[in-house]
Design a protein around this nucleic acid. Structure first.
Lengths: 208, 208, 208, 208
DNA sequence: AATGAATGAGAATTCATTCAT
DNA sequence: TATGAATGAATTCTCATTCAT
């Protein structure tokens, strides 16, 4: 049976199936045949739209990154927001992307291996945006950071992993970011600095 | 030619070759044939000692974790070291492991399940050790951390990624850790807090 | 965009693109998609005009043979030319065809059946023409050949290969033909027989 | 079922099957699967012995060329033979190789496409041997050839094709060679020059 | 006539694993 | 214990051909 669709939507379908399977099984464990069967289309059609498996991977990642970039740009470019406000929103955005893809990509089971590659891409995409905000904050004395770029790398990657680890509470993230960036307690919406150590009392599972 | 050795040392030889190749090329890119050729033994003999490639991977990870644990224990249990000294040494140890096994940690891309095993294993091994040190530091007021376990996760993952990104300078790491943990400037060997912002002036490539 | 043309010229366009690509890349390495893209028309249209790729190949060969035949006929039927003149012109024609369709003739490697078709077709086309000239020359005592048909086969194939080998100098070919056919030295435009051995002094690469 | 043989003979088996199939169907039309099935062994074993299909092709050709070279060397290096004798034997050898492979490779049906590649190889292999003989003959005035290397190329390739065309009579070949090389009539065993033109009277099919 | 999305059979190649010796 | 030949399923990718529009 032959179902004909316009190129754009077919491409998107294939991309969606690929993203879903990558998220579930990892890139290496997902075959092009599986992707085709998931759409479903003939294997050859996948190669009609994408030159190679690698190109599919890249396209999936690009789609993610593009969405994040758009969202970040909308926040960063607003003049009516204070730096802490921007940071707070960026934080939210960042996790919303992760979250949405956790939903979209059905990430709940295995940890998506694609995330490693995506992270690099998202980082490269988001870095400059966040950086400009950090710079502004640093200039106004709001933020005290040594090696802001390095610290940003640690933050982005560390927080992403923490989130995937199951820690979804934005208030917690806010506190952590405040501390890492040397912001005043509560400026991002986290609870005040006092009594911090009491916030986490129970033993948590270290990683996953 | 046929060389006969006792089981223990043969197993160790195979494990050593596997670890070496995994670390340099990654797990997915290392074939059982390569491992056998590297020892060198016949491919069949590898399967005499290990039921499958996965079992080799597990064994390599176990050995790695065991070594890390031993090393950490040796540091943590020393009474003659101050907390900052311990942290500094732990930091060194941590990076040494990462450095030697970068490709193994990079497995994430191809084998999410395998990577989860490495991460969980190393994390479970290291977390408690480091945690006890942090706890002690926190009790003495040396360290000011909210959610120390979360922060530790961020630090471990974030620093590991930063390191893999090409930032190898221990002094830089020290400063970053000091700040994240709220230690006094320089207590880990990083330069004092003053003038921090001047430490990183040139534009650095964000991630990779 | 949709351009409508009459059947004849469309067919010719497709054939032209096919011939060009076949000649440059060989038949096996040229895909139907490439041909369509070169015209340019949609792939489907190619199959509207030709039942299969093989049929395209046949059509290309036919066109080639037809052109060669026309050209040879034009030479052979001229009464104002001497036999050596005719031979000289036939030689030129022959190499012009080879030159323009080198890759097509190289098809031999991948498609023996197809190559046989080209060879047979060109041979059947050219043989009789050349033969009649040779016969006339033989009758007049100009040419001294045993087994003229066999010798012709050797000459055609041998010269073709020599040409494909990179020896393009018509004067050299002339001398070789003179000698093979027992013509008087220089009658085809080659240098006189004397001093022959000095003509080729440098070591040449034997084949390719 | 698993039949184990020593590497050498297995390699030879695979090569034999490959040569046979190549000769029958042409290289491109022969799949590695077919070769494996013909031996018969598992497809993977073929790749155990040969890195790629191309390597199989090369190996088949090399085997042919090696056999020819050996044989030629044995003739050329003999001091007790006159130049015409050597040439006569070389001629025989040359056709014997073709003949033997026509038998070995079961070439009767389709023309072997492999022969194109083989021809280049055989030419490169045989060229120097034959060349030295030709040189000696030329020095003694036995042979009158312009561009001996070119003429040799024409001869080798032309004769091979003539042979494949179905002309197997060595006496005919001898006459043709005598004429091409300007040898005295009959010196190679062909009939005398006189009456040459009567030798071939009937119309022959031009090519195949 | 014309398009180009869609098909699917089959190609080369890889490699974990098995097993006769 | 040790060898390495042998297996075969799985994988990526190609392309001639078809067909709904």
């Amino acid at each position: 049976m032959r179902t004909i669709k316009d190129a754009k939507s077919r491409r998107r379908e294939i991309l969606a199936s690929a993203a879903h399977l990558f998220a579930h099984q990892g890139v290496a464990r997902t075959t092009v045949s599986e992707i085709a069967a998931d759409v479903p289309v003939a294997k050859g059609l996948v190669y009609y739209y994408f030159a190679s498996k690698d190109e599919i991977v890249s396209a999936v990642i690009d789609a993610l990154a593009a969405r994040l970039e758009q969202a970040l740009l909308r926040v960063v470019s607003r003049d009516d927001l204070s730096v802490p406000d921007k940071l707070r929103r960026i934080l939210k955005l960042f996790f919303r992307v992760i979250e949405r893809h956790a939903a979209l990509l059905d990430m709940e089971k295995d940890r998506p291996d694609m995330f490693a590659r995506v992270r690099d891409r998202l980082c490269a995409t988001a870095f400059d945006q966040v950086r400009s905000v950090l710079k502004a904050a640093s200039d106004r004395g709001l933020v005290q950071v040594a090696y802001p770029d390095y610290m940003l790398t640690i933050l982005i990657r560390g927080l992403a992993d923490l989130y995937l680890t199951g820690v979804h509470d934005l208030a917690v993230h806010a506190v952590l970011v405040e501390q890492v960036l040397g912001l005043d307690g509560g400026s991002l919406g986290g609870a005040s600095r006092l009594g911090r150590s009491r916030k986490q009392t129970g033993r948590i599972e270290p990683c996953s």
